[in-house]
Design a protein around this nucleic acid. Sequence first.
DNA 1: TAAATTTGTTACCGTTAGGTCACGAATGAC
DNA 2: GTCATTCGTGACCTAACGGTAACAAATTTA
Lengths: 187, 187
Amino acid sequence: MGRTKLYDPQDAIAAIKNQFWAKGFEGTSLQDLEAATSLPKQTLYREFGDKHQMYLKALGDYERTEILDAATTLSSISGAKKAFEALFEKIIDAVDISNDRRGCFLCNASADRTSIDHEIGAQVSAMLERWRKTFQTALGAAQQSRELSDILLAGYIGLRVLARSGLNVVQLRGIAAQMLTLIPANS
Amino acid sequence: MGRTKLYDPQDAIAAIKNQFWAKGFEGTSLQDLEAATSLPKQTLYREFGDKHQMYLKALGDYERTEILDAATTLSSISGAKKAFEALFEKIIDAVDISNDRRGCFLCNASADRTSIDHEIGAQVSAMLERWRKTFQTALGAAQQSRELSDILLAGYIGLRVLARSGLNVVQLRGIAAQMLTLIPANS
DNA sequence: TAAATTTGTTACCGTTAGGTCACGAATGAC
DNA sequence: GTCATTCGTGACCTAACGGTAACAAATTTA
């Protein structure tokens, strides 16, 4: 049944994700993707389809890895306040220690592609809604209403966009601290 | 001293701004800008420089018009809570009534170009900082600390990114309402 | 009116974009 | 071992990209 692949599709999509994450859709060329994956474009097209589909799959991989990882952080800590504190700390530490200012791929995609490509827009919306639901679950008993998860989502997006634009760590920590005050202490 | 211009540079830069605002930097071609301004590219290059400079000037125009307009809304109303309420209402009304989901050009630029073009990144940072200072001024006596303007800025960004990605008006209003609860009622 | 200057228009440039085709090499199933 | 299948590689395509050069038309100053 033919030759076996010399590459790992999972590795490839991860590399594609990182490229789109850093440079955006239009800012990433097929040549960039070839370099990032060490794969010729022909292989990329055969495996993933065209650039548009690659982007969708990159978003999917982002949810499967980074977002799931963050969701695990949230759910593994009891007490909503402490859980969100850990989440924010993780994000800001990445900026502080690794100087990771890529921001949130999903947020970047939201500001970047949603107005141009409706299919991507729909996927971004769906992902954002699942992410909000994750917030809602993490809030548990601390949740008074749906609005709390909404504003935490908005604050989260702002935090990550500001991190991307170069805000210093002290200010980022201040924002995170303020957001935590929104969460009731009980539970 | 030569021929008079048949076009208004102000109109032109406004059209360029709208194009970049809607489609982003890489998503906008010189051809798009020609169409938007009804001007041949030669005129655009002579008047504004290359694409990179056009984007910078578009950002400048955004600050000179939209941001100044919003700042006026903030400063013309006494009482910080009411002032921010008016600001958010204006933004959400634009979504509700005109279905204006372009978001905030500055926020879009922040998520889009800052990691690629450092000069644009610097300008975006400077504009964000001025915008935060505007928040600070509007807070006036209601301001407890610098952190309040920081989180309002983060929430503002989140609100506008979510509007761009298609969040419904009810949820947007909920976020705005939550943000207002952060502002002390006195003053 | 004459000269200087800046306009708007046309054509053109090299480069890169996303995407496809054709083919030899490798390896699976039988 | 044979054959079908899928791989990796290279060349190639058209279109669009950002940007420039050359020039005639127009208009202000003197």
